[in-house]
Design a protein around this nucleic acid. Structure first.
Lengths: 204, 204
DNA sequence: GGTCGAAGTTGACGGTGTCAACAGTGTTGG
DNA sequence: CCAACACTGTTGACACCGTCAACTTCGACC
């Protein structure tokens, strides 16, 4: 793995970038403070000038990762002609992100180190991602294609389904259970069932 | 933390038990091979006589953990008068398990070390847990309280929702997003919407 | 032009997973 | 009956990791 360009940006940004690359290419085990420093081309202790902690660097990577996830969602759903198509695009975008960068995805959603930190910026970006999904859900409700339940709860439900499916696929267990052949199929099943419920009376 | 009884069971079982205790009481960071050995009262290298690897010990803990999760589900759903009540009990059991032993839950579902291992026994128990949920889903379909979609896919959907909700709650983000006030509420919303879809025609 | 603070370096420490070599010990085959 | 052997456990070492402390550079600012 070659060094990152040394003078282009601030060292702090370079560290975040290098950490993202390490976790993408070698999994969470490869994300070592010393390896990050070496990749940037500074000594093993220099990162402490920019991050108090390994956890702080992880938090910065996570903040950046959530922003990228939001950008991906925004890009993929932008051209959808209606709310239903946007939801389908959201499903595709979410799973593609998780599959393309599995270790980063796990860092964002399921890393216990990060979870314990509750760094303000990370939580803000996580919430922003959630809100973006919420907007799509609300629009779909307005178009009558999703049931008229409490939008926040419905968003929570759909978001949790999306994450649960992605996480299980990342665990490798979706292969063996035939019910999981394609998580996209199951997400689609969820959407179709929700739409069906939208036409029934007792959907709250 | 006091030592485990030295003579009661085989050392291997003691190691698994000690590891489970460490991860429950101190999180995944506390689960150290040397700490496990010390807790059992043997030297730091003795565990290698029973497990090839730290990952192998983790796998044994996970296998045991899945069995306990299955037992919990079986116990809680046994007394349910009908399939609907059983599903409600399943929801309660799953969340209670995740909340009571968060680090173990993360090990079972979202640990990258374990995920990469694909130890046969762990996957078998994970599948058995999934199957147990599948049986409840099928029964609920037979009682007309869930839509008649492909049972495997429907199980995958419900299981993923359950896991997604539990994982997000463990991440601590369910607090901030008001939509997540209680994951039980959202699981209930899922069940109610599915039931509503069961009476609509297009639920497949 | 001298001061000061930020950024980086070297060196050390304890802790962790893992390997290698050795020691006791109970079972078994000749 | 005793020697060979497979288990289980011990001690010691190694490389790697996160982190702390002390020292060096060096550019900006009064």
């Amino acid at each position: 793995m070659e060094e990152l360009s040394p003078t282009s940006a601030g060292t702090r940004a370079l560290l975040i970038q290098a950490a993202g690359r390490l976790i993408d290419e070698g999994g969470p085990g490869a994300l070592t403070l010393r390896a990050v420093a070496a990749l940037v081309g500074i000594s093993h202790n220099a990162p402490y000038r920019h991050f108090a902690d390994k956890r702080a660097l992880l938090a910065a990577v996570a903040e950046d990762g959530f922003k990228q996830l939001q950008a991906t969602i925004a890009r993929e759903t932008a051209s959808a002609p209606n709310a239903w198509a946007a939801l389908l695009a959201l499903v595709r975008a979410h799973f593609t992100f998780a599959r393309t960068r599995p270790a980063l995805y796990r860092l964002l959603f399921s890393d216990p180190e990060l979870t314990a930190a509750t760094d303000g910026a990370v939580e803000r970006e996580a919430m922003a991602t959630f809100s973006r999904v919420g907007a799509l859900i609300r629009k779909a409700q307005a178009e009558g294609v999703l049931p008229s339940a409490d939008p926040l709860r419905l968003t929570g439900l759909f978001y949790a389904t999306l994450h649960g499916l992605a996480d299980i696929e990342l665990s490798g267990r979706a292969r063996e259970a035939k019910g999981f052949q394609t998580v996209e199929e199951i997400a689609l099943l969820q959407l179709n069932l929700l739409r069906a419920a939208a036409t029934a009376p007792s959907g709250r």
